[in-house]
Amino acid sequence: MSDFILEATDIRKTFGKGDRAVKAVDGISVRIRRGKTLGILGESGSGKSTLGRCILRLIEPDGGTIKFDGKTVSGIPQSQFRPNRRNMQMIFQNPFSSLNPKMSIGEAIEDPMRIWKIGDKESRRKRVTELLDMVGINPRRSAAYPYEFSGGQQQRINIARALSLDPKFIVCDEAVSALDVSIQTQIVNLLMDLQKHLGLTYLFISHNLGVVEYLADDVLIMQHGKLVEYAPTEEIFKNPRSEYTRNLIASVPAMPTAAHLQAKEADRIARGKGLASARSAVAG
């Protein structure tokens, strides 16, 4: 068995034709090790979501090959691809709109198991209870509808649904971007816990550098559908090689911490000294 659960090579996708063609994904290759997380960073419109959808074949890529768990899953018809859906799932940005408003959350989580004819009614309901418990939602509320939950809870329900088929690989498409900062932390921690316990592999798409730095093992940075930088997380954040990455990291608005303020003060003094020495040089 290959070390990499996912190997996507030279993925390409163009939207539109002629003058208005947009290369949303332009020759991106990624490899993710089992149980690891690859973060994809980029501003809106950089093609990161398209890449995620191409890998899951929710959008048909124009070119490139995708190997999942050692098997080539690109270039085959959707009907042959379909069995792979059990192993690869997605969590969406908007927790409310990705839940069917006409299904109670219990039905929503049970539905994938019904599609795949897993177990009988009783064992499926037991599994629903287990899953809700796992994501921190009271299983007694399984008859409630999505609008009865807060955004954070809805995202937990989405996570439970994605886990219902025991997938190996999950694409998180801006999975915490629509949530409050405090809830974001909870969901990110939940995702990391689940990864540890279930051995999940994540492709974590985000524009939030802090979150990606926190949970990704490797980071891929995209701009206008092209690869900018692809390296282990630490290296990217400590030692960014491209101008774009440096700008991206510098553009994060951060609350000034004590350390920040000290550094700033030191910087100011250093500059003052520089100025003073320049003056004395002119005078001298």
Partner: peptide, 29 residues
């Protein structure tokens, strides 16, 4: 798990019941 499982915020009805991952062999139902 008990220290890392996030709560659901104050007032969420499931918060106290969801104590994280079910221990091996335990069945929440």
């Amino acid at each position: 798990p008990s220290t890392t499982t996030p709560g659901q915020g104050p007032g969420a009805p499931g918060a106290d019941l969801a104590s994280g991952f079910p221990a091996a062999g335990s069945d929440p139902s």
